[in-house]
Design a protein around this nucleic acid. Structure first.
Length: 553
RNA sequence: UGGGGUGUCGUCUAACGGUAGGACAGUAGCCUUUGACGCUACUUAUCCAGGUUCGAAUCCUGGCGCCCCAGCCA
């Protein structure tokens, strides 16, 4: 197994003793939204590195902007990280806001050393002074103030004497740098908002660039892993820590995750929620971690997916089918099988004795013998899937049709004798006969059938609402300003009266089953005793659907 | 346009001067009490042009494409 480029760096560092053999990573979310599958990649990378190299992993909230951050997000992020990474981060949860005092002291240090100053440019002026790609910037008048004058202004900023937008603290670096991040970046701005943890004790808040390296440094992080767009910020990360002479982690950038048929920008996810295009952050159609969990994706499947896609510095887009495959792969091994009919078609077995039922043996999971067997009741009136019957079947359709014999799984061979229709010509009932010699599904004379169908006995069936969850967007690359136009109108199809085998009636919330021949389904949070609700986690691969699709353009 | 990054099958990803390999997707089969799972085979790639070398995806030179940066967001 080959190493990814970050593992190579870590192993080289361990070899040379750069960090005395320590590996200490972190995941630093801003609590301004819910975590999504892209964050999962980062969590798996950072937590995985710590696990693999016997290191330490911190979760640290980068809560430096009280205008956007909320406790609700802190809580959801903690739940998501615990679900995905287990208790690796237990007792290792930190907050940037806990470091505000130290950060402020460091800021005074830089001001006293003449390396930072208070700037009184307005936001508009600051933009003008920054220059362009072609032209260097102009120096702020604040640059000429003495350290003592700057220190006094800084203290008055901290004391809350000024309004938002009036002053900033900036590092004195290079207004002519080709890298805009070095054109005297802002370290502090005045924000008069209530912070979810520090309340109203601060009137100034550190910017990302100023805060982030200090956070890493204070926590003795070794490898500070972030996404590619922060590469331009690394010189600044290094500058602050060098100027202050502090412990200095190594920033390493990797390519963020992109997925087909998915948007992953926080802004857009927030819009989907607040614009009511979905039912909430954990709507099973969302790419958020809480939605994947609600939908029945196993954490192990998400981890396997993150492993499989690799870690590089190349911009890439992963086929969302890879995620779905990882889920199928996990659930195939772990999920118990059940029979459920989503779109019922009534079947009457005309030679079955009236008023009698029979309990038949069914295997719970062919991939796991330890899962055992269960009894499924059979009777005179059954439901099969509407799609499993065709009056005039095309060539490659080998399910039930007039005159044809098929197997009902774990039950009997049945042969279609008659089709009943309503006035409009819709098939309302299929009449069959069964062969008593085929009990359990084997024919003693060795005759073959081309199809095996799932079924549910009408008399004992449980009823459920089933939410057929599909991709939220119907184009491969929905990103763009008009992404809402790409919403899939059929992303959620509701089935109100699915028929289930009775063993499903008492299934616990969260439990995932394979409904044979249909897909994996889990019991939704909304489910209550007597009012079952299932989500379709993911479909099974469907060779027949694919065959049919060939006929279409 | 200044700065930074990055180009290998359709999509991900490996190969660290020595047989361009794997996964997903696709195609054709096999198997099957799930048209699932599993199994087999096949198709398809080094951005371009020069150079160095016995030998280049890899090293050098020059092009070209794509991504990021001009928030008091992160």
């Amino acid at each position: 197994m080959s190493l990814n480029f970050i593992e190579e760096i870590v192993e080289e560092d361990n070899r040379t003793g750069k960090w005395e053999g320590r590996v200490h990573t972190r995941f630093p979310p801003e609590p301004n939204g819910y975590l999504h599958i892209g964050h999962a990649k980062s969590i798996c990378l950072n937590a995985g590195l710590a696990r693999k190299y016997n290191g330490t992993f911190n979760v640290r909230f980068d809560d430096t902007n009280p205008a956007k951050e909320e406790q609700e997000y802190v809580d959801s992020i903690l739940r998501d990280v615990a679900w995905l990474a287990g208790d690796v981060a237990k007792d290792r949860v930190f907050f940037a806001s806990d470091y505000f005092g130290k950060m402020y002291e460091y800021a005074e240090t830089l001001v006293k050393a003449g390396k930072a100053y208070v700037c009184d440019l307005t936001p508009e002026q600051m933009r003008e002074y920054r220059g362009t790609m072609k032209e260097p910037g102009k120096e702020s008048p604040g640059r000429k103030r003495t350290p003592d004058e700057n220190l006094e202004l800084l203290r008055r900023m901290k004391a809350g004497e000024f309004e938002e937008g009036t002053y900033t603290v900036r590092a004195k670096i290079d207004m002519a740098s080709g890298n805009f991040n070095l054109r005297d970046p802002v370290m502090y701005r005045i924000v008069k908002a209530h912070h979810h943890r520090t309340g109203d004790t601060w009137a100034i808040y550190p910017s990302y660039d100023w805060a982030h390296g200090l956070e890493d440094s204070l926590e003795k992080i070794t490898h500070s892993i972030c996404t590619l767009e922060f590469e331009n910020h690394r010189p600044l990360y290094d500058w602050f820590l060098n100027e202050l002479g502090l412990y200095h982690p190594q920033q390493i950038e990797f390519a963020r995750l992109n997925l087909t048929y998915t948007v992953l920008s926080k802004r857009k996810l927030l819009e989907l929620v607040s614009g009511r295009h979905v039912r909430g952050w954990d709507d099973p159609r969302m790419p958020t971690i809480s939605a994947l969990r609600r939908r029945g994706y196993p954490a192990a499947a998400v981890r396997a997916f993150c492993d499989e896609i690799g870690v590089t510095r190349v911009d890439s887009v992963i086929d969302v089918g890879r995620l779905e495959n990882a889920v199928r792969g996990d659930l195939n091994r772990t999920a118990e099988r059940r029979m459920a009919v989503l779109k019922p078609l009534k079947v009457v077995i005309e030679n079955w004795p009236d008023g009698t039922t029979e309990a038949l043996d069914a295997v719970n999971n062919p991939e796991d013998e330890a899962a055992g067997k269960r009894k499924v009741p059979f009777g005179k009136v059954l439901y099969i899937e509407r799609d499993d019957f065709m009056e005039n079947p095309p060539k490659k359709f080998f399910r039930l049709s007039p005159g044809r014999e098929v197997r009902l799984r774990y039950a009997y061979f049945v042969t279609c004798k008659e089709v009943k229709k309503d006035a409009a010509g819709n098939v309302t009932e299929v009449v069959c006969t069964y062969d008593p010699a085929t009990k359990g599904g084997d024919s003693p004379d060795g005759r073959k059938v081309k199809a095996t169908l799932h079924w549910v006995a009408a008399e004992t069936a449980a009823t459920a609402e089933v939410r057929l969850v599909d991709r939220l967007f119907n184009v491969e690359s929905p990103e763009g300003d008009d992404y809402l136009k790409n919403l899939n109108p059929k992303s959620l199809e509701l089935v109100s009266d699915a028929k289930l085998e009775p063993s499903l009636a008492t299934a616990d919330v969260g439990r995932v089953f394979q409904f044979e021949r249909l897909g994996y389904f889990n019991v939704d949070l909304d489910s209550k005793p007597g009012k079952l609700v299932f989500n379709r986690t993911v479909t099974l691969k469907d060779a027949w659907a694919k065959e049919q699709a060939k006929g279409e353009p």
